[in-house]
Write a protein that binds this DNA or RNA. Structure first.
Lengths: 181, 181
DNA sequence: TCATAATATGCAAACTATTGCATATTAAAA
DNA sequence: TTTTAATATGCAATAGTTTGCATATTATGA
């Protein structure tokens, strides 16, 4: 169960509401951790019950109340324990590859279309990543320090997307030069 | 829901029992689709109820009965429909990157140990993949035909593992040359 | 002015996956 | 000879995720 720990990571860096966390997931952890708002609100509730986090309610005139969560000592300890623990390797389930594996059941054009779409998506994300990378690289050496580790996770994202694009090119070439059906 | 479709892919290629499917998942789809035996047996039951598959019971003297499943027309149609449908992009959740992101909370040595373990695992899998690749490449051109698409999924596995190793080297260099805590 | 998007939170039902338990045979290794 | 691994199947409880619904405000654009 690691959504819990991903939330602890975000709250350790800065307190925030469920909605803040949703936005931060999308902005900072999006390519290696995803969570919906329903998951986040439910998990926050559970984590509060087990005293990993606390919250303060902000009454805002007119607007709905906003709960600002922050990490407790217990939460911080649990986070450090988890980071130091050995997790088992990630379980991978990739529907696109299953489709390709059995692709001889459909027209090659169908596969090609799906591949183009995939390529377009990956390219778009890669561009975003490269922009973020430039922002980091443009920082003065002294300012880089706190972002070194997050930058390494960004590097992972860049390498991953580049790998997908390299592969997509290989598949394209193969689909164009051979009859697969 | 794609475990269903992954099973249909395997049964479309060849009939088999739940245990056969478990072994085939491990041998052929393992790096892009994983399923436990509990998942498989339960899913087969559901799929039989919805008539995507049928089975014949083999009574074996002494041994427990073996159910051999095969795909029905309905199942084959459902599979083709699914392959032609647009799936949404994969949801990614990678605990190792979450740990690294917040790695400044622990000793750099802890991160390094985890990274070494990861590298070792990825290297081992990559070697297996490269062996499989050699087997394919050694086939005569005419024999390659039916494996072209599965080979492309293997290429994806190889590129993925190489990407992880390239990244792990970058992280190692960074952890060695800078203080992250 | 009306519609849409963003902010902000949450419940309930359905679905999917994991963990633990349970059983029984055969073959190979210690 | 005893234990372990592989073959072979399955249930039940728990955990985790997705989908659909529900509400309410503010700001922006058509």
């Amino acid at each position: 169960m690691s959504l819990k720990h991903a939330i602890l990571v975000l709250l350790e860096a800065e307190e925030g509401s469920g909605y803040d966390l949703l936005k931060r997931f999308q902005a900072h952890l999006g390519f290696f951790w995803n969570a919906s708002h329903q998951q986040i609100y439910l998990e926050l509730k559970k984590m509060h019950a087990s005293e990993l986090i606390r919250f303060q309610t902000e009454h805002q005139a007119g607007k709905p109340n906003k709960k600002t969560y922050s990490i407790t000592e217990l939460g911080r300890d649990a986070l450090i324990d988890w980071i130091q623990s050995h997790g088992k390797p990630n379980k991978v389930n990739d529907a696109l590859l299953v489709k390709l594996y059995a692709g001889s059941l459909v027209e090659p054009e169908t596969l090609m279309t799906e591949l183009q779409l995939h390529k377009k998506n990956q390219t778009k994300i890669l561009e975003t990543f490269k922009q973020l990378e430039q922002e980091y690289l443009n920082l003065a050496e002294t300012d880089k320090q706190p972002y070194r580790l997050p930058y390494l996770t960004l590097r992972r994202g860049i390498i991953e997307k580049e790998g997908w694009l390299q592969w997509a090119d290989e598949v394209e070439t193969e689909l164009r030069t051979h009859d697969t059906k």
